Amino acid sequence: MKTQEELTEIVRDHFSDMGEAATLYVQVYESSLESLVGGVIFEDGRHYTFVYENEDLVYE
């Protein structure tokens, strides 16, 4: 099982292909040891929320 830090790095790496991230945040109260819930805000103003669970990243 991966730590939240490892899950955060996986998510950060995925979003790095989409541009320069200004902020990546984790909603600790919705996350667990198995999943990471949060969002990313890019330098150009785009904002996505995400759920990373079971090696699957879903974002909108």
Rank of each mutant, 00 (worst) to 15 (best):
M1D: 04
M1F: 11
T3R: 06
Q4W: 13
Q4K: 09
Q4A: 08
Q4F: 13
E5D: 08
E5S: 07
E5A: 11
E5V: 08
E6N: 05
E6L: 07
E6W: 10
L7N: 02
L7Q: 02
L7C: 11
L7P: 01
T8R: 08
T8C: 15
E9F: 07
I10A: 05
I10C: 13
V11A: 04
V11I: 10
V11Y: 03
V11K: 01
R12C: 15
D13A: 15
D13Q: 15
D13G: 13
H14S: 05
H14P: 02
F15W: 05
F15L: 05
S16P: 05
S16N: 08
S16K: 14
S16D: 05
D17R: 15
D17K: 15
D17F: 14
M18V: 05
M18A: 04
M18C: 14
M18F: 10
G19H: 06
G19V: 06
E20W: 14
A22R: 11
T23R: 10
T23C: 15
T23F: 14
T23N: 07
L24S: 01
L24E: 02
L24V: 12
Y25I: 10
Y25W: 06
Y25P: 02
Y25L: 06
V26E: 01
Q27I: 15
Q27K: 11
Q27H: 11
V28G: 07
V28W: 14
V28Y: 13
Y29G: 03
Y29N: 02
E30N: 14
E30K: 07
E30T: 09
E30F: 13
E30L: 12
E30C: 15
E30R: 05
S31D: 05
S31G: 09
S31T: 06
S31C: 11
S31H: 07
S32Y: 09
S32F: 09
L33R: 12
E34C: 13
E34R: 12
E34G: 15
S35A: 09
S35Y: 15
S35I: 15
V37G: 01
V37R: 13
V37M: 08
V37A: 07
V37L: 06
G38M: 11
G38D: 01
G39H: 12
G39P: 00
V40R: 00
V40S: 00
I41F: 09
I41M: 06
I41G: 00
I41S: 01
F42M: 06
F42Q: 00
E43F: 08
E43R: 11
D44K: 01
D44G: 03
D44L: 08
D44I: 12
D44R: 02
G45P: 01
G45W: 10
G45E: 02
R46M: 04
R46N: 02
H47K: 05
H47V: 07
H47T: 04
Y48L: 06
Y48P: 01
Y48R: 00
T49H: 13
T49I: 12
T49K: 09
F50Y: 02
F50T: 00
F50G: 00
F50A: 00
F50I: 03
F50M: 00
V51H: 08
V51D: 01
Y52A: 01
Y52S: 00
Y52K: 00
E53C: 13
E53S: 12
E53W: 12
N54D: 05
N54E: 04
E55G: 15
E55W: 10
D56A: 14
D56K: 15
D56I: 15
L57E: 02
L57D: 02
L57G: 01
V58W: 12
V58Y: 11
V58N: 06
Y59V: 12
Y59I: 13
Y59M: 09
E60Y: 13
E60S: 09
E60G: 06
E60T: 12
